[in-house]
Design a binder for these strands. Structure first.
Lengths: 205, 205
DNA sequence: GTTAGCATGTAAGGAGTTACATGATTTT
DNA sequence: AAAATCATGTAACTCCTTACATGCTAAC
């Protein structure tokens, strides 16, 4: 439940997705919503300007628009397939290694986690433990609030806080499991699949 | 995990808090962070303009700044205690009765829930069921994504989706419990406290 | 009487949304 | 060839944040 403070994760998510496969904007947006549930329904008004900026910075390159026979159609409007550049890959590594802001509602954790396969074990542990620390701080605050205001709140507010506390506790338990698995093997416990790391090509229909 | 899309809940939260007790801005901000954990640390840059607008609309009234002996200090800067007006109470009822947007990440649910004690049973049920519906849609999308991409995702992305799915499932179970309790008695199951509905006065220190 | 914390405010800007506008491709 | 959907883009706006600036009050 966060709505919250959306930090600068969009470029990270775009670079991460393009690292796996070249894609055009429309496709990218679908993946952003479904694969990374973090963005509910990112609007094109956010996505396309972001792509333009990343291209200007040389982190991604534009291919096309192409006609079906492969020639470039200069004046025409059409699909633009984006792919990550060498500089883009470097930047992606930097962004992935950055621990997010210090706020507990930080959305960027999910995006970082989704691209863990592209990072090294040290970075993963650092980010996981960083998030756990932030959640534990939040936990302390919530417990204090519940203790402090025990007699002063109506039952609905109280129930909301109790449920919030349980949610954060559950999140911390999950993090602990992931961290434990990470330390022992590097593969999440519940996954029966081997990470597929070979870049695959987008099938444009 | 949203971070995100912050709808127009601030006026609702302010009116709801002021309905319980008059308060000055600084105090209001503390309550917004601790009582409604929804706002992590709302900045004054958001709060004060909001208070000004609500005052202009006649939904809240400003008292003070006052000196310790009760006189109004015209030119001086000092504490301004806000209280809700009759129109403000009407507006609060309207805002509370509004079901939030159709997006599953909607933050406003938490705020609505926190002020359930000020609404009638019908409104409560409508909002609870509306949220459950939105979460169930999200559930469908997540399950489809997990089924569809089962073979194509790396283990971290998969684990993230699995955990997200479990979180939403848990949220739906909680909602079901609350709804069931609501239907039978109107008092949340886990609460041992009777709602305190008499407006109390803020103790300014 | 000076430091620390309470309290109120403003200006600039970031990150995203909505609404709009247009063109290309596929389906009927 | 009309309708639906895919695909790209822009302008205006919203809501909130950061950084700054100021004054009041309590504690040492």
């Amino acid at each position: 439940m966060t709505r919250g403070r959306r930090s600068n994760v969009l470029p990270l998510a775009v670079l991460g997705l393009l690292h796996d496969a070249p894609m055009h904007g429309y496709e990218l947006r679908k993946r952003l919503s479904s694969v990374l549930g973090v963005f509910r329904a990112l609007s094109y008004g956010s996505l396309y300007p972001c792509l333009r900026i990343l291209a200007q910075e040389g982190l991604i390159a534009e291919d096309g628009p192409l006609d079906p026979r492969g020639g470039t159609l200069a004046g025409k409007r059409g699909r633009i397939v984006y792919r990550i550049t060498a500089e883009g890959k470097e930047r992606l590594q930097e962004l992935l290694a950055e621990a997010g802001p210090t706020a507990w509602e930080d959305d960027s954790f999910g995006v970082h986690f989704a691209f863990f396969a592209q990072t090294d074990a040290d970075t993963r542990l650092r980010i996981l433990e960083g998030r756990r620390t932030r959640l534990e701080e939040r936990l302390g605050g919530l417990r204090a609030a519940l203790g402090r205001t025990r007699e002063r709140l109506d039952s609905y507010t109280l129930e909301l806080q109790r449920h919030g506390l349980e949610s954060v506790e559950r999140e911390v338990r999950w993090l602990n499991e992931v961290i434990a698995t990470e330390r022992s093997s590097g593969i999440p416990a519940t996954s029966e699949h081997i990470a597929e790391r070979e870049p695959r090509h987008a099938q444009h229909r």
